[in-house]
Amino acid sequence: MMKKPGSAAVALLAPVHLLLLAAIALPSLYVFWMSLNESTYGADPVFVGWRNYEVVLTDPYFWRAALNTFVVTNVVVYLEVAMGLGLALLFTSGLPFRKLMFAAVLMPYAVSEVVGVLAWKILMDPNYGVIGRTLADLGWGMNWSASPVQGLVLVSIISIWQHLPFTFLLLYAGLLSIPRAVYEAANIDGAGPVRTFCHVTLPLLVPTLLIVVIFRLIFAIRMFSEVWLLTKGGPARLTEVLSVYLYEGAFRNGEFGTAAATGWLMVVSSILVASFYLWQMQKRIASGNA
């Protein structure tokens, strides 16, 4: 039996929605207003219309940051989903030291981005890191602080390492929720492991895969710490991603108007990705089994 919400329900909901309104909703809307003004420290904002957007959209550094974000986001998310799926299959098919391995796989989730960057930065260092020196001995010496591409490769590795537990857990839960009877039926029909995976497991996993990909895309678009802590956007601003571009503009150069325009462009791209997910979710809530 579900009740219609009355004043008591509104009162109970108020704290959650006040926090969301004050810390996220109103500021996000206000950013749009900021993006139409020119403002910096200690000066009154001046309305300039769409000019900040013109400035941002004609800035080659913005496009470099947008390109980096696009490439890194896609590489990270699809590699990570592939690895997470492989890992989840390894776990459902049984493996030695299961409990220990499950704990080990979860561990990076508990680690701060700062510590993740610190550990990988040292491990990959070409002069004194274990992996970096091994790679150098094999003739694949990395120099990620001088080469933008290698810098972004390391950023992607760290990002995948950090978020793989999340992706793995969702995919693993999705695999476990596939009824056993389906596999038995495939087995009786004489399907081998590859065919079973392609024609039974994968189609049934599509809803989970969609959620994982969308979630991870949204969280990858906002990537900041990995890049900021590893390269500071350098060399020569070539490894900047959108968040770093925004941070530089606002908190280093005090250009809040153009930073707000960048921010709003990030919001719009996140919304585009998210709207698909929300559309799916609303369908489910509307049908009453949220």
Binding site: I24, P27, G263, W264, S270, M281
Partner: peptide, 15 residues
């Protein structure tokens, strides 16, 4: 409630 949570945190730091 879910949608608003998907916005990038760095954006709200500006205002």
């Amino acid at each position: 409630m879910i949608a608003i949570r998907l916005l990038p945190p760095i954006v709200v730091t500006l205002p």
